[in-house]
Computed example of a mutant assay.
Amino acid sequence: MAASARRLCHIAFQVPVGQPLARNLQRLFGFQPVAAREADGWRQLALRSGDAVFLVNEGSGPKEPLYGLDPRHAVPSATNLCFDVADSGTAAQALAGRGCHIPVPPVTVRDAQGAATYAVVSSPAGNLSLTLLERADYRGPFLPGFEPVSSVPGPGWVSHVDHLTLACNPGSSSTLMRWFQDCLGFRHLPLSPGEDPELGLEVAVGPGRGGLRLTALRSCPEGVVPTLVLAESLPGATSGPDQVEQFLVRHRGPGLQHVGLYTPNIVEAAEGVAVAGGQLLTPPEAYYQQPGRDRQILAAGQEPSLLARRGILLDGDKDKFLLQIFTKSLFAEDTFFLELIQRQGATGFGQGNIRALWQSVQEQGAGGPEA
């Protein structure tokens, strides 16, 4: 293990000038701006909801955006995951010793609130880079070099990032898994009993529809890092490209497909997003008409009509349930979406829900929210 990721600091996005991501995160999902920076051709805005922080890098400049890397990617994209580490210099040196490319060597940034040192390492997951950040004594609202932004408190729909899902090329999950294990100290998290880490969890969607392979990873026990999920298509689809295949084409390669945001009250959050104008995927009508579905929803302490009205998926039994709802793409290129997730004792991702999402996306297609 070359470095140990202790906490997710933020997720960075790179968009062209005028792209409405930052505005939509505020207006549709309740994120609030906390700090901003304008320099070197970049406008960088950090937005927060609970412990979930997104950094939107807008523009393109002659220098790298602070705390990240400009990959010059063809479409708007989630481009960077920033992790807190104990010693960024030592971590970068160890990763370089493993053959990793370090496009931004360790650099220290200071302001009146303290200092932070960071380095950026290229990952094998397409255009996604990783920032290794050391900021133990920093006292500001975000990071050195950013100015605080005043804003009114948000609705509090989201408390933290639950998981990060990378769309991968076919057959690449095991290679990516080993890289995150060897370089950042992640370990395999079985999603089913006796799961082979080389095979992951295989979810067959149906005849002619192919399916999905999921491989989950978690950080060291002392870390506070979201689960990392590697997703790749299974062979066998004859009805056209699925969501993962479409992402690989539209995104021009692998990358961060979606972020799962934890909400303590998914009904309230879904209602709030919908009222604000956010576009949510709705599962097939037959999903709520399956035998025993009402009984399952009631056992989870939920109201069937409320879940059906907003398209909230539920999976699980006894006292372990998982509730999920997915947005349409936040980019016109259909390359990134959000998930709202509420866990009631469940730790997985719901195989039945995966099939329902798969079918709903295939039937409806993905579209970005209104600007």
Rank of each mutant, 00 (worst) to 15 (best):
C183F: 04
P155A: 04
S233N: 03
L21C: 11
G126Y: 03
V267M: 08
S123V: 13
G292K: 05
P16Y: 06
F146V: 14
D51G: 07
L281A: 09
P71N: 02
P20Q: 03
D182L: 14
Q289F: 09
L306P: 06
R250T: 04
L45Q: 07
A74R: 04
F146G: 11
F142N: 08
L164P: 12
Y138D: 09
S305Y: 00
G348L: 05
E58K: 05
S129E: 03
V104R: 00
I102G: 02
P304T: 13
F31L: 09
V273I: 14
V275Q: 01
H160N: 05
G145K: 08
A237F: 11
S219P: 14
A116L: 09
A52G: 10
V224S: 06
Y138Q: 09
T108I: 06
D334T: 09
P207H: 04
L132H: 11
V53N: 02
H101N: 03
A116G: 08
S151T: 15
W42M: 11
A346I: 14
S305G: 03
E370P: 11
C82M: 08
E271W: 14
L314F: 09
G236H: 05
R209L: 15
E58V: 07
H101L: 06
D162T: 12
R7A: 14
F31I: 14
G211E: 04
Q302L: 15
D87H: 07
L143P: 15
T347W: 11
F321Q: 01
Y262D: 09
A286D: 14
A371L: 15
G126V: 12
V56A: 09
E363V: 15
R27T: 14
T347M: 11
E370K: 02
G97P: 10
D40C: 06
R135P: 05
S122I: 01
L340G: 12
Q344D: 13
G50W: 08
R23L: 14
S329M: 04
L128Y: 02
I11S: 06
H101I: 12
E64W: 09
V203W: 00
P65C: 11
P170N: 02
H251P: 09
Q113V: 08
E245L: 04
D196T: 13
R309F: 11
T263Y: 07
S77M: 06
P124D: 07
R48N: 10
A231E: 03
G301I: 15
A356L: 10
N57E: 13
C100H: 05
E303K: 04
R293A: 12
G194V: 11
P20I: 08
L338K: 01
